[in-house]
Design a protein around this nucleic acid. Structure first.
Length: 437
RNA sequence: GUGACCGUAGCUCAGCUGGUUAGAGCGCCAGGUUGUGGCCCUGGAGGUCGGGGGUUCAAGUCCCCUCGGUCACCCCA
């Protein structure tokens, strides 16, 4: 199973293979399925006029630390970071901060219009892997930058839901909440602390620690006893000012108008510091412990956290592709089948093999999907290969055919075969293939 | 970082209370058809039983360590 001197993929990563082979270190879906998922994602998001942005996988560590937040789990313990020369690098653990960085760097804000970006690609987090969690994982998401209206929030959530709708996923649960803004949050934080302080001895050690560092994070505890303690805790919404509350109410109204079902969860806080106002999370019952399919929210303060001189309103979501796959498999999603080979060239003898090599090129130029034997195997073995590849036709050529300038073309479904002059092969295969498909 | 469970051919697994040359199905290769697939039949290749150490006359089977996997905690996608 494992030979010492051979290499394996790094823990928490996987290879995506052309054919689904159940094997350690390989994703259980073939590359074709990944292409399909990516394609659907692109189509849906582009329908919303989100346009792709590609940023480097390598970013300055400081960008992530300031963007995501110094005290977040991501920054304190989950970054793949290293130093080289006098620069600190990270493999990006998320894409929102990099997109904002690009937006500011290229002065896209000067263009005035609302910017709608989408991205799709790998991210890295040094966590212990488990179901739906990897060290190199793949995300897609959108960032809508430059609009502070509740309609922008609704648009982002609508785009997110549209992706899952396109895949026909059912039983999804959308939860939303508001975290208020830079004014209300500190006030709420204090109120929450004041409430929890007398109960500190009944909290878990981590929560007790968070009481000092980041009290909001205690809200999303899974500990039953803590949840009960929190029932009487002050609610964020009561600290949000008139404007913030109106924003939240408007978002909810828009979601209703869009026919998007949701539930409010006053305890929904997210582990990234940049969120303000609207936050949301999409869950699937099919995922196991890592139940979040996607999440996001508004992050109006991120630009300033990154050193910009004015706030830049923005809202976005991020979604996990591996988790999408889990949900798709659980709901028996029908992935498109591998397109079959139009023809497999079977050759006998060196000369015929050379002919096949050249003929394959001609057929491919004519638009056909063609493969040929490159091992010089027996005819039987080549036929077996043609069958395995589910080729529509096997084209057999040996010395005899070469001399007579005609090939034996075998229909692999019916088993019927006929002779076709070599110079008519392209037209024959194209014509017949077109007719039969 | 912590915990639980698991680790025998490419894949899925069987190997009873430790005891002769470690097995099956699928897959792969070849033959049955001197130039032909899918079904069937026959044969073959492929395993340091994750690795190391220990107990024992004897270990895939027991003990320890280690590596890897899975799931969970934490948190997130």
């Amino acid at each position: 199973m494992s030979l010492e001197p051979t290499f394996r993929n790094i823990r928490g990563t996987f290879d995506i293979l052309p054919r689904d082979g159940r094997s350690e270190g390989a994703h259980d879906m073939p590359s074709r399925a990944w292409q399909h998922v990516e394609q659907v994602v692109r189509e849906v998001l582009e329908r919303f006029n989100f346009q792709e942005i590609r940023t480097p996988i390598l970013e300055p560590t400081e960008l992530i630390a300031r963007g995501v937040g110094q005290l977040t789990d991501i920054v304190t313990k989950e970054m793949f970071a290293f130093r080289r020369g006098d620069t600190n690098y990270v493999l990006r653990p998320e894409v929102t901060a990099p997109v904002m960085r690009a937006y500011l760097q290229h002065r896209i804000d000067q263009q005035g219009a609302v910017q709608k970006f989408y991205y799709i690609g790998p991210c890295f987090r040094a966590e212990n892997p488990q179901k739906g969690r990897y060290r190199q994982f793949h995300q897609f998401g959108v960032e809508l930058i430059g609009a502070e209206t509740p309609e922008a929030d609704a648009e982002v959530i609508a785009a997110m839901m549209a992706v899952y709708e396109a895949f026909g996923l059912k039983n999804l649960r959308l939860r939303i909440n508001t975290l208020g803004d830079a004014e209300s949050r500190p006030r709420y934080r204090e109120a929450l602390r004041t409430y929890l302080l007398p109960l500190a001895d009944r909290l878990t050690p981590t929560s007790r620690h968070r009481l000092e560092t980041n009290p909001l994070r205690i809200l999303d505890t899974k500990d039953e006893r803590e949840r009960r303690l929190l029932e009487g805790a002050p609610r964020i919404i009561d600290f949000v000012d008139e404007k913030g509350r109106a924003h939240y109410e408007a978002v909810k109204a828009h979601l209703q108008a869009l026919g998007i079902a949701f539930e409010e969860d006053p305890f929904l806080v997210r582990g990234l510091d940049y969120y303000t106002h609207t936050t949301f999370e999409l869950e699937s019952p099919d995922l196991g412990a890592q139940s979040a399919l996607a999440g996001g929210g508004r992050y109006d303060l991120l630009a300033m956290d990154l050193g910009h001189d004015a706030p830049v309103p923005a809202v976005g979501f991020a979604a996990g592709i591996e988790r999408l796959f889990i949900a798709l498999q659980a709901q028996r999603y029908a992935f498109p089948e591998e397109p079959p080979l139009d023809a497999y060239l079977v050759s006998l003898g060196e000369e015929a093999m050379r002919w096949a090599l050249v003929e394959a090129q001609a057929l491919r130029r004519a638009g056909l999907r063609v493969d040929l034997d490159l091992k010089g195997r027996s005819m039987k073995a080549q036929m077996r290969e043609a069958n395995r590849q589910q080729a529509r036709y096997a084209v057999l050529v040996g010395e005899r055919e070469l001399a007579e300038k005609r090939a034996v073309v075998r229909d692999m479904r019916s088993g019927q075969q006929q002779e076709v002059p070599l110079d008519e092969l392209t037209d024959f295969l194209k014509g017949t293939v077109r007719v039969s498909s």
